[in-house]
Amino acid sequence: MELLTNFFIVISTILIDQSLSFFLPYDYTYQSVVIVSSLFLIVFIYLLLKLQQNEYLFGFSIGLYYSVIYGHYSFAYPIIFLLFSYIIKKFYKFNLKKTSEYFLLFISTTFLYYLFVYLWMYIGNKTNISILSFVQYRLLPSVLINSIYSLIAAKLIKRNI
């Protein structure tokens, strides 16, 4: 039941991200800033930290859902979400206490997520954007926006703890 509830929470935040994308800067030609909102990733990591069991199933199902609905059937998403499940379970579970620790975890996972998906797309010839353009126009602006989410999320978590 906990797994199912978490699944629906993440799906709801994906819908929020989808709606936010309409108001954020975008450019298919990559000649200006592109911001991709990933609020769902922060929520996913937080729920993963709280989840008692079935972390891998949770990660895999979210990855698969995202891949089928939004990710053009790319297998990058189930892999990266499984990887996050492994890292969180192995190293971070019940170890985080400070706001800064939460913030760093959220921001580093966002960074890793964007980079991994880009590399996957580049290797799979789904994009021909150079790494420089990607970092300049997509990675840094998106991480910046997501750092605001991360900070708010970290503060909220700390307050609840």
């Binding site: 991200d17 989808q18 994308s21 309409f22 975008y26 298919y28 592109v34 991709v36 939004y70 990710g71 053009h72 790319s74 998906v117 797309m121 789904k126 994009t127």
Partner: peptide, 10 residues
């Protein structure tokens, strides 16, 4: 009504 959320698919 919708843009490609991830923007990889154009």
């Amino acid at each position: 009504i919708e843009r490609d959320v991830e923007q990889w698919g154009n």
